[in-house]
Nucleic acid binder design. Structure first.
Lengths: 216, 216
DNA sequence: CCGGATCCGGGTTGATACTG
DNA sequence: CAGTATCAACCCGGATCCGG
């Protein structure tokens, strides 16, 4: 991107991450951790392959990502965020918090990937009862599954299907998210097609926490 | 901008404000309040006039800004932010906080407008002594002047030269900002060309406050 | 002066095909 | 799997022009 050439923090930030697709690439790397080129392509439906290659080069030059060339035993190269890149989490959360209310009116054929729920879940879920033994919940809302583990006062959200979940929640993305974030009751969720199996009390263990800071 | 067509809060937000110049236009309107077309042009060095006109149309359609057509007595039409547009302040603060550390290495001929200091000053300054009578400080750092008024526990930062300031601080933008935000002592600032006239104690009345929330 | 509209050259994006 | 190559369409930047 052409620089704005303005002595202004906002303009300087946009010089680095204002390009189309750049923040979405950061999103993917925040969710996945070190990822292969093909993993990124899967999580960025619509991006041309050459554009992803270009962006990764620019982002590497800007110090946002680094490539881990594989050791001799043939493996695939990985891309990961630098500390500077991970520092974009507050930016992404701010844009997402601002943009999320408009998701209701999005068109029917919009793409969705289950792992996109990871950031909102990490942001809003808290362990309701740190002293009890940990619980594990499986979330199914699209093309894949997530693992939500609560224990010791923290909640870990990861991509992938857990081995022995205490409960499983499945349904349409918006309905599942609304349920987990406390925007819909279990009865309302049921009417919207959300199904919960296993120990329902495990769901009560993770509670939404919208008051993390004063700026929200 | 083409939509990403992704069911994701980040993508939805970028669909609306990911276009080039859009967030900088919001910056100007946050600083200036209702503004004329020409005022915006002055605060956005480098933007082509047609692009500003296009963006304002798109932003009006997206509900970010609204035009106040002048009443019969001939006046110039004004553009102002809607509530939805003002809600972008946390986004802009997050990007600016992330981008500001790179301002040191910016090229010499970057543009600067004094009023760009308004948002960082509003964000970081606090009234150190709410019970004392209010003070007013004039800030000169480029093409114009700002008024910083502290009193009753709050700090008001506005564009324009105050009538009777208790103190005046003038110098290069980076040095003045570093001084006001407490990143440089008065002695260091002096070496960097910052000059303070009037009552220096008025400067001690406004103090930097970086701990406003836990996300910074 | 204010608020644009118009035109044009060049760069970027999007879509797809292809290759080591 | 990890890109490169190609090409059309679009968008941006720079300039000029024009009606109030």
């Amino acid at each position: 991107m052409r620089s704005y050439r303005q002595y202004c923090g906002l303009a300087a930030g946009l010089d680095a991450v204002g390009d189309r697709w750049t923040l979405l690439i950061v999103r993917e790397l925040l969710i996945l951790g070190p990822a292969r080129y093909t993993d990124l392509l899967r999580g960025l439906p619509g991006i041309p392959t050459n554009l992803l290659a270009n962006r990764l080069r620019e982002m590497e030059a800007a110090g946002l990502v680094e490539r881990q060339e594989p050791a001799p035993p043939v493996a695939t190269p990985l891309v990961s965020l630098t500390e500077r890149g991970r520092a974009l989490l507050p930016v992404i959360e701010a844009v997402a918090a601002w943009g999320a209310p408009t998701l209701g009116g999005i068109d029917r054929d919009a793409e969705f990937r289950t792992h996109w729920l990871v950031l909102p879940l990490r942001r809003h879920l808290r362990d309701a009862d740190p002293d009890k033994p940990p619980v594990c919940i499986e979330v199914q809302a699209g093309d894949g599954a997530l693992s939500v583990e609560a224990g010791g006062g923290t909640v870990h959200v990861q991509v992938g299907r857990p081995d022995a979940p205490d409960a499983v929640i499945a349904g349409a993305p918006d309905a599942v998210l609304a349920t987990l974030l406390g925007h819909a009751t279990l009865n309302e969720a049921r009417k919207r097609g959300v199904r919960v199996t296993g120990n329902r009390r495990a769901l009560a263990r993770i509670i939404p926490d919208d008051g993390r800071d004063s700026t929200s």
